[in-house]
Design a protein around this nucleic acid. Structure first.
Lengths: 134, 134
DNA sequence: GTTAGTGTATTAAGGTCTTAGTACAGCAAC
DNA sequence: GTTGCTGTACTAAGACCTTAATACACTAAC
């Protein structure tokens, strides 16, 4: 996985882990890989993974059993709520930026439609997390 | 202006200043307020403003005349290009996040349409720049 | 009991970001 | 010349993030 430079990695991991849960990549109730294993997979320090998982736990997406490991919550309503929340935040972020550029709704929708199948959807640069790539 | 905690302020200023230029709030060829004045307006340190403006200059959006101040570029083609680039990056960011959540184009478009006039478009939290708010 | 695997906590080091304060060079107005 | 305004440069301090390397408590398997 690649990370934005300038934004804390643990915050980006919260996003990634949330995504894995709401997409079912990490199924409800299933066991989450250990901090050392995740750290190895992601190429970061176990401490960084732990900080992200602690935040995930605070948000009610997982629970830790001190000696057996961490498990995704079995509360599917909670997972559904987070999925909707992530979608809303993504949409609102785009709307805020589009409005800031003076776009109208029709323009914005057309732009999304056009670029969805346009080809590359790489983050272009993804610098510093502030949407300031050029 | 409010800033995300965890993401460098100077990067967020690059975005904001770019937005002001491409929207015409800072007209092509016009003078940009001094670093001290901007710093006072934004509630940050003049050094932070200067770092953002230096980046803006690197991107060809402004030029500095060492004793008279900074001026927005008169190259309107460059401004148009940046405006398009900012729109594309915003769209691609949304598309990447929507796809990551398993959404289909029609769903994504409907979501944007629905929330454009939904009411509040506050950044919800905007923590750490990693789109990880819940 | 021993071993291995969990999550968790701690300390230290190095890096970046932000603020603060100061200083300098150059131009314009008086 | 003096004053005031620019951009620019520099140092120092504090805060946060990341990495690294341990260490501990607890459970399960043998």
């Amino acid at each position: 996985m690649e990370f934005d430079t300038g934004a804390p990695i643990w915050g980006q991991l919260v996003t990634e882990f949330s995504r894995r849960i709401v997409t079912g990549e990490w199924a409800a109730g299933s066991r989450i890989p250990g901090v050392r294993e995740l750290a190895s997979e992601l190429g970061v320090n176990p401490n960084t993974v732990q900080r992200a998982l602690a935040e995930l736990e605070r948000r009610g997406l997982c629970r830790s059993e001190r000696t057996a490991g961490r498990f995704v919550t079995s509360d599917e309503e909670r997972i559904d709520a987070i999925r909707a929340e992530l979608a809303h935040v993504a949409a609102d972020d785009f709307i805020r930026r589009a409005r800031g550029l003076g776009m109208r709704p029709a323009q914005a929708l057309h732009l999304i439609e056009e670029r969805w199948t346009h080809g590359d959807h790489t983050p272009a640069d993804g610098a510093r997390g502030g949407h300031d790539d050029v």
